[in-house]
Computed example of a mutant assay.
Amino acid sequence: MTYFPRRSSIIEGVGDEVVYAFGAFLGIFIPLTIFVVTNRNSRITQNQRIHPESAENVRSTREEVQRTHPNRRQASMQNTGEITCPICLGNAEYGIETNCGHTFCGTCITTYWQHGTWLGAVRCPVCRQQVTLLLINFTEAENDVDSPDRQHIIERINDYNRRFSGEPRPLIDYLRDLPTLLRHAFTEFFTVGGLIWMFRLRIIVCFFAAFMYFISPLDIIPEAVFGVLGFMDDLFILLLLAIYISIIYRQYVQNRPTNAPQN
């Protein structure tokens, strides 16, 4: 009788399929995390030009902002390295980021909404995507000062989010929103006073469930049969996880009280 030596596993006591699944999980999750975190830095350097279809509304908003805020600082011709608001052309004060990833002054974007003749959620002045969520993007100095302007902007932003963040959207909009929403959710998750523990727990449970699927020997598309194509179901599960986390964060922002800590 011929005996074949037993092949040793990569890690003693742990099946190779578990090791491969864990490696696939890290190989997918880590690049996604790096992309989400670094997306902001690459986006800031991009020129936020007003879309031609928004030009008239933006011009009207500029006049309204100048009329109601005559002392508002205007942009200089020098590049200060800060984010420029496409509406007033000045450095963004009390910055507000849309779900599509464009940043405006809090006063400018709320004036753009309230001064215009909109039947529902506005469209982004830059890319014309429907703005269903406005995200606080204040600087540390602006967060430390409890001014009436800051409180007024937060109230208007919360009012907008409660009205329009729950509107139905096509799947492509969920995918477009992922970089911005995941970045904000990631930042608040590790910030003291950010996401409350209930929402943090939901996110942790989602990651744990996805991880258990990755290390499970049961696959929708088994790698042992389909090879590299067998990881397609893992990618699909990770995409669903990202979309669900963005939905959780959207619900949190929608219901955030006015006096809650802002990030």
Rank of each mutant, 00 (worst) to 15 (best):
Q151M: 13
D159E: 11
R150L: 12
E142W: 07
F189W: 01
L134I: 10
V145R: 15
F207R: 11
V228H: 06
T132Q: 13
T132S: 14
H152T: 15
R169K: 05
R200Q: 01
G194N: 07
L195C: 00
R156S: 04
F208K: 08
R176V: 02
R202A: 08
L134K: 09
L133F: 06
I172F: 15
R200E: 00
T139F: 05
C206K: 05
C206M: 04
L218N: 11
D234I: 00
T180A: 07
F226N: 07
R176Q: 06
V192H: 02
N161Q: 04
M198K: 12
I153Q: 01
Q130D: 11
L201H: 01
Y174G: 09
D233W: 05
E142Y: 05
F186D: 13
T191D: 03
P179M: 09
G166H: 06
R162H: 07
R200K: 08
V145I: 15
M198P: 05
L175Q: 02
I153H: 02
Y213W: 10
R202S: 02
Y213C: 09
G230F: 00
R176G: 03
V145F: 15
T132C: 12
P168G: 01
R162K: 11
F190A: 07
Y213T: 06
I153S: 02
C206D: 03
